[in-house]
């Protein structure tokens, strides 16, 4: 890759994250308005920008003896992992930030590493409720990781490749969402869990007064929320590429199909927050291990049979 290509890739991923995170905030407000039966206000579009401005104006607070370095590192790391995950997803047949052979594994590794920033953000402030949130997320992460990786793995079998480009190409004629019907729901479950969004919001729940973000304010909080939104965007883009045939589709140019499919998944993910109550921690773990992992294994077997 030339230097220009490097800068282009970085700028592209950065732009995708900023635009995507903003879209998540807008969609969240819009769906909330619909659910609450309120008229659409102008604040739906402008509100996220105002909140970011508030984050820039507001000071950071500190707790008694926090691990300041780790605390500051957490949102940056989370955003960075979301960017790494997004970088391997191709926007069209030729437009891809990081074209590597093992794109799927890189995506999985970035998702697996997300445990670390979430744990750090809860553990560093040295306060009990964020700490409990941090431990909850570890339990949650250990539960969703297996279904997540197995769901990702299943799409690589028909493609005989770990490259996401090949995986999209393998869906010519038949999308994975039809070929592997269990894959997409499992993947979306893991995606919502990864961003601890909506029903999977165990570490940041209201019962912990905000959990891992209970002690944060100002820019830190904005960065943390942006990281969550970026994770959702990365997951939605990956879901579109791996299960909905990425850039494949009639009429429109490839990138437009990709954007449309990503937005559909994004709205599904964001909307789950307003229709489903938070799952209990115990039930979450039981469901993940006792139901979803067998389903994910079944999904891999279907993939193997299909590929034969």
């Amino acid at each position: 890759m030339t230097a220009t290509a490097w800068w282009g890739a970085i700028a592209g991923v950065g732009l995708a994250i900023i635009v995507g995170a903003y879209l998540v905030a807008v969609a969240d407000r819009a769906i909330a308005s619909v659910v609450a039966g309120e008229p659409m206000r102008s604040s739906i579009l402008a509100g996220p920008a105002r909140s970011v401005a508030l984050g820039l104006v507001q000071s950071r607070t500190t707790t008694e003896r926090p691990d300041g370095a780790a605390w500051a590192l957490a949102p940056a790391l989370y955003l960075g992992l979301a960017a790494a995950a997004l970088a391997v997803v191709p926007l069209s047949e030729t437009l891809l930030a990081a074209d590597i052979e093992n794109g799927l594994v890189l995506f999985g590794a970035a998702q697996a590493l997300a445990v670390i920033p979430v744990f750090l953000n809860g553990w560093s402030p040295n306060s009990i409720l964020p700490l409990i949130g941090a431990f909850r997320f570890i339990a949650q992460a250990l539960s969703y990781e297996m279904p997540n990786l197995l769901a990702l793995l299943s799409v690589s079998v028909p493609a005989s490749s770990l490259s996401i480009h090949d995986i999209v190409a393998s869906q010519h004629g038949l999308w994975n969402v039809v070929r592997l019907p269990l894959g997409l729901p499992l993947f979306l479950f893991a995606a919502a869990s990864l961003a601890f969004w909506g029903p999977m919001n165990l570490p940041d729940g209201a019962d912990l007064a905000g959990g891992t973000q209970a002690e944060t304010s100002g820019l830190h909080l904005v960065a943390w929320r942006a990281g969550r939104a970026a994770m959702l965007v990365a997951a939605a883009a990956m879901g579109a590429a791996a299960f909905l045939g990425g850039w494949l589709g009639p009429g429109l140019p490839g990138w437009a199909w990709m954007v449309v499919k990503t937005l559909v998944l994004l709205v599904l993910l964001v909307g789950s927050r307003h229709v489903a109550a938070r799952v209990r921690a115990e039930r979450y773990v039981v469901i993940s291990w006792a139901v979803l992992i067998p389903l994910a294994l079944l999904n891999v077997m279907i993939a193997a049979v299909v590929a034969l």
């Binding site: 594994v105 890189l106 590794a109 697996a112 590493l113 992460a141 250990l142």
Partner: peptide, 21 residues
């Protein structure tokens, strides 16, 4: 060793989470 490297990171992320617990 692209695959090995990514698998190592993926595996260790989970293991360190368990380790911390």
């Amino acid at each position: 060793a692209e695959y090995l490297s990514l698998i190592l990171i993926l595996m260790m992320a989970g293991e360190m989470a368990i380790m911390a617990v």
